[in-house]
Design a protein around this nucleic acid. Structure first.
Length: 270
DNA sequence: ATGTCCAAACGTTTTGGA
């Protein structure tokens, strides 16, 4: 791993729910080589910390911090040619053995929060209540971050379909935990608090999906959802250059049910 | 209720979570 001495003109920040980092390692490495993102947030590692494939990640040119757990959840932050400086794992108000859903690190002058929000189904019910409680903790914590005028990216699988434009058939999802008014409102409150939904800002009218489930040929029919979001602080949103979804990755063999999603931002001085 | 995929578990199948 080589350390860069100069800041590049732009940085690519990506988020990718890999749905099992070891089962999908070939897909992840292929995409890293193709896209060469500078910063990557990963979700659903589904691996204990000791099974994180650090050797392969480092061989691909990335430093990493990770917060795994057995079987489920798990988040990581990768940085190309650098070691991310971990600043936090878990949200305030959570027990030490809470599900691994948040990790945060400083990379190249940007504070990167990598999150995996609870799915929350079935709704209503205790899982949905836990999802809402998680969002309240996230809203409280990120309000604190927004109060400091530093560049922050909150990237991950929010498990929220923000609007009707973000789902193939809205009427079929009304009662789903990904689309119910309570979670859409939580997401909306983030944007009201000053966080910029980068993809939607640059593509205001476009149907953009980041997830297609494995059932019923959802990808083939383009029956998708936009669940993976990159929210930028005011400071960082002002540097936004481009954003997109690498949807072709969803068509690869042994693909995750999510596609990588990314933004590029300019250097601090323009 | 269904569909697919993965990983764990006393396991060459079943189960739960997404």
């Amino acid at each position: 791993m080589t350390r860069k001495s100069k800041s590049p003109a732009s940085l690519t920040i990506a988020t990718f729910n890999v749905n099992g980092i070891n089962g999908r390692l070939a897909v992840l490495l292929r995409w890293l080589a193709e896209r060469a993102p500078d910063i990557v947030c990963l979700q659903e590692l589904k691996a204990e910390d000791r099974w994180f494939p650090l050797d392969a990640i480092e061989a691909a040119g990335y430093g990493a911090v990770w917060h795994g757990q057995k079987s489920w959840n798990g988040v990581a932050i990768l940085a190309r040619g650098r070691q991310p400086i971990e600043t936090r794992r878990g949200l305030p108000g959570e027990a030490a053995d809470a599900p691994s859903r948040y990790i945060e690190a400083a990379v190249q002058g940007i504070l990167v929060g990598c999150l995996y929000a609870p799915n929350g189904n079935p709704a209503p019910g205790p899982k949905f209540d836990a999802k809402l409680a998680w969002f309240e903790r996230f809203l409280a914590y990120t309000a604190n971050l927004a109060a400091h005028d530093v560049p922050v990216a909150l990237a991950g699988d929010y498990n929220v379909i923000p609007t009707d434009l973000d789902v193939d058939k809205p009427e079929r999802w009304r009662d789903d935990a990904l689309f119910r008014p309570e979670v859409r409102d939580a997401f909306r409150r983030l944007t009201v608090a000053g966080w910029t939904d980068a993809l939607r800002t640059l593509h205001p009218d476009e149907r953009l999906y980041t997830f297609w489930d494995y059932f019923r040929n959802a990808f083939g029919r383009d029956a998708g959802l936009r669940l993976d979001h990159l929210l930028l602080s005011r400071h960082l949103a002002g540097r936004l250059l481009d954003a997109g979804v690498d949807r072709h990755v969803r068509g690869w063999e042994k693909a995750s049910d999510h596609a990588p999603t990314w933004v590029s931002v300019g250097a601090p001085d323009g």
